[in-house]
Design a binder for these strands. Structure first.
Lengths: 142, 142
DNA sequence: GATAGAACCTCCAGCAACTAGAGCTTCAAG
DNA sequence: CTTGAAGCTCTAGTTGCTGGAGGTTCTATC
């Protein structure tokens, strides 16, 4: 039997986080000692491992909850799990695209900035310029 | 002069968000009408544009606050702005790397899932397998 | 069996960065 | 001068945790 600290260590989770997962019903209430301390078994270790891996993959706790429900009643179609994964993939692809655009822009900012005075600092200019991506028609009186 | 709603529309910001930026001191308190409604000018439009663009670029509000401070007192060295940008770039690169790993895994999950019953659904298996990335030495009693 | 101190317990508060709603007032058009 | 959209303040909720206060339990050592 594992203490909450042991479970935390094995799954790379913080103790507080485990208790938090319990309060939101993602993990079941575990056994307790006479004194009231939590004790965990293999099932708990597996379930928490599943949750943590899902989180690393970028699933929301709600998505993970859905997946766990699916896994708990394995009579339904797998299409549900598939659609959750597809939804996630789409989000991930969007995020990557936006981040890559950002990466390019930051690189440009850094390249153009020659450590002079702020007066001719390009980092600030880039941001200022783009604050005018809202160009003319976004200016007051246009 | 713009109303808060007009400013919101022009910058693609929600009205509540503008008021929020004001309460945290990111935007200055604007002029008010007799009746107490906020009225904004070009400066506010620029400043909020700067903030929103920074947010889209992934800067935290704190980082944006630093940049705005820099822009407000342009006597200091530009090295500060540069280092903020570098810090951000590193974070962005990390995020991209993690997301790409995730993308691959999700694609595999979807590819392997053939819309059968959950019994042989690979989506759940992938997550289950990896919950055992904590392999043997992570099992209780090992 | 006493004791020390690490690890546990509950409860509350807070983080970022907003978002939403209740209940009320003001503005601007017709 | 009325009407209804848009404004106002204030409070509370969101997601996914994290930290602290103040107190109890477990376990190892003497």
């Amino acid at each position: 039997m594992l203490t909450i600290g042991g479970l935390a260590k094995r799954t790379g989770t913080k103790v507080q986080t485990i208790r938090y997962y319990e309060t939101i019903g993602l993990l079941p209430e575990p056994e307790r000692t006479e004194g009231g301390q939590r004790r965990y078994g293999q099932t708990d270790l597996d379930r928490l491992g599943f949750v943590r891996h899902g989180r690393q993959l970028g699933f929301s706790l709600e998505a993970i909850r859905e997946l766990l429900d699916l896994a708990d009643n394995p009579t339904q179609s797998c299409a549900d799990a598939d659609s959750i994964a597809r939804r996630q993939l789409k989000q991930v692809e969007d995020r990557i695209a936006r981040l890559q655009a950002l990466q390019v822009e930051l690189q440009r900012m850094i390249k153009d900035c020659g450590h002079h005075s702020v007066a001719d600092c390009r980092v600030l200019e880039v941001l200022r310029d783009h604050s005018e991506c809202l160009t003319d028609h976004d200016r007051i009186g246009a």
